[in-house]
Simulated assay, not measured.
Amino acid sequence: MTQKQYSKEEWTARCELAALYRLIAYYRMTDLIDTHISLRVPGDGEHFLINRYGVAFDRMRASDLVRIDKSGNVQDLNFTDLAVNAAGFVIHSAIHQARHDMACVIHTHTAAGVAVSAQARGLLPVSQHALKYYNRIAYHTYEGIALSADERERLVADLGTHRAMILRNHGLLAGGPTVKHAFHEIYMLERACQIQIQAMSGGSELIIPSEDVCLRTATQFQREESEHIIAIAWNAAISLIEDQKASYTS
C-alpha cells in the first residue's frame, strides 16, 4: 500500500491519525489491541478511518488504517476481507453520525479512567485538570460490551453537546473537530483521572474548590488563546515521537 492510492487530503489525515495512535501508546493509554480512535475522512461525511484490528498502537502506520462507512462496511480495497473492532464501530459510528463537530473520537480503557468510571460520584473537581470538565462532561451507563446498534441512540443522547464522556464501568471517551483537539481532550481527562485516584489513595480528606472557582476555571479553559495552546501542545507531543515519523507515515 502506498500514498498514491489515496487523495492528498486522506493521506494527510491518515498520517495524523497514525501519529495519534502512537502518542496514545507513548502516554500508556492503550489496552492491548482494544480501544480505538477514529477520524472522519476529510470532505466526506459518509466514511471514517479506524485502526486495523490487531495492530499494536505503537506500531500503527497510515497504511494500517481502514476506511469504513457509517454502516460498518469496509470501503478500502486493501482490506476488503477485514473486520474492524465491532464495539469500536458501534461507539464511533454513533458519535460521527450525530456530532459533525467531532471529526476525531478517542476511546480508552486506562486503569485510572476505568477506576473513576466505577465511582458513584464520577470525576471530582479536585484538580485544575478536572475543572476543565466542570459541568462539561457526560456519563453513559454500562450496558455490556458495545456490540448492539441499539445502544447508539443512548450513547448520543448521553453525550449531548459535550466533547468528553465517562463510560461507566468501562472507560473514557473524548473527541474534537481535529486530531489535535481530540488529543488535548483525552490527555487532560486522563490526567484528571490519574490525579483523582492518587489523591484518594492518600486517605486524607479532599479539598474541593468553591462553586465560583470551579465555574470560573472551567470558563478559563475556553478563553481565546486556548486554540493556540492546543496547537503548540500537539506540536510538542509530536516532537516526542519524531524518530518514528518515517514509520507512522508509511
Score class of each variant (00 low, 15 high):
I238D: 00
L173I: 11
A174F: 03
L155T: 07
Y26K: 15
L189E: 13
R191W: 11
L49C: 05
E227N: 11
E10H: 05
Y187E: 15
S71P: 00
D58M: 03
V179F: 03
I166R: 00
S148Y: 05
A19E: 11
P209D: 10
A18Y: 06
W11Q: 01
T161V: 15
I186K: 03
G113I: 06
E46D: 14
A87D: 13
I95W: 05
G202Q: 15
L172I: 04
H96D: 03
F79G: 09
H184W: 13
T219Y: 08
M29R: 15
H109S: 02
R136C: 01
Y248D: 06
K70R: 12
L39M: 15
A246S: 10
C193W: 01
D34Q: 03
R22D: 09
F89A: 05
E46T: 09
G160E: 14
D31T: 05
R216N: 13
S127F: 09
L49M: 14
G54H: 02
R121Q: 15
E211W: 00
G88D: 09
V114F: 02
L189Y: 06
D212T: 07
I24P: 00
A236E: 12
H184R: 12
Q97D: 14
D212C: 00
V213I: 14
L32A: 12
S226H: 09
E190L: 08
I232A: 00
Q196P: 07
V66N: 01
S38E: 08
A112K: 03
D101R: 10
A199I: 12
G160R: 10
A62T: 09
S63C: 08
L147T: 15
I229M: 11
Y26D: 11
A130E: 04
S247R: 02
C214W: 00
A83V: 07
R59T: 06
D243Q: 12
I37T: 10
L23W: 12
L17V: 01
S239R: 14
M102R: 05
D101E: 14
E10R: 00
R28W: 06
T110S: 14
D31R: 07
M102H: 09
R22L: 10
R152T: 13
S38P: 05
H107F: 07
T217V: 15
L17Y: 02
V90H: 07
E211H: 09
S210T: 15
N169Q: 10
M188H: 14
A233L: 01
D212Q: 11
R223T: 09
M102A: 02
Y139N: 06
V126W: 06
R67T: 13
A94E: 04
A199G: 04
A149K: 08
T141L: 00
T108Y: 02
E211Y: 07
F183Y: 15
V55F: 08
